[in-house]
Computed example of a mutant assay.
Amino acid sequence: MTEATPRILAPYLSQFQGQTVRILGKVVQLAGETAFIDAGGKVTLDLKTNRDCHLAVGNAVEIIGKVDSNLEVKVFTSTDMGQGIDFDAANAVVDATHKYKEIFYE
């Protein structure tokens, strides 16, 4: 069995330090080996571990990465989801997974 990757938003980062997670957010800024996404709040992405990430400002992206002690996410993989994502629906999925976490990741 592979490691669980719970879906989270920015407010959940502190609860998942040291764990691998999935985050869907909108790319708001690129700065060298760092990117910033809006995922219910600001999330800082460390791109050093995956230099093949091709992020575009304004596009949605799904990140799989590990939350470090500074609440930055070291990116393992990323998927550009383009534009037109319904973030309200996506955030509702995240809320459901945490409400019923025993089904999804415990």
Rank of each mutant, 00 (worst) to 15 (best):
F16N: 03
V57R: 08
A89W: 11
A39Q: 05
T79S: 05
F87N: 02
I37Q: 02
V21I: 15
A60T: 07
G41K: 06
F76A: 13
A96Y: 10
D88R: 09
H98V: 11
E72H: 14
E3T: 14
P6R: 05
A92L: 13
D68K: 10
I8T: 04
F104D: 02
I8A: 03
S69C: 06
K99P: 00
P6G: 09
I23Q: 00
G18T: 13
D52L: 09
K74R: 14
T2A: 12
G40D: 08
R51Y: 04
T2Q: 05
S14A: 15
K26T: 15
S69Y: 09
M81L: 15
V21R: 02
D95K: 13
V73N: 02
L9P: 00
F36P: 00
A96I: 14
Q29S: 15
V21Q: 03
V94G: 02
T20Q: 08
Q17G: 07
V27R: 00
D38W: 06
P11Q: 08
V57L: 06
A10P: 06
V27Y: 00
L47W: 03
T44Y: 05
V21N: 01
G58P: 05
E33M: 09
I8V: 15
G25N: 04
L55C: 10
G40E: 09
D88Q: 12
A4F: 09
T49N: 14
V61C: 02
N50F: 09
E62W: 04
V93C: 06
E102L: 07
Q29I: 12
T5D: 01
I64R: 04
A35W: 02
K101Q: 13
F16D: 01
A31I: 08
M81Q: 15
T49V: 10
A39F: 04
A56N: 10
C53D: 02
A60H: 07
K66C: 14
D80N: 14
G32L: 07
D80P: 01
G18L: 12
L45K: 01
A35L: 05
K66I: 15
L47S: 05
A56D: 09
L13M: 11
D38F: 08
S69F: 09
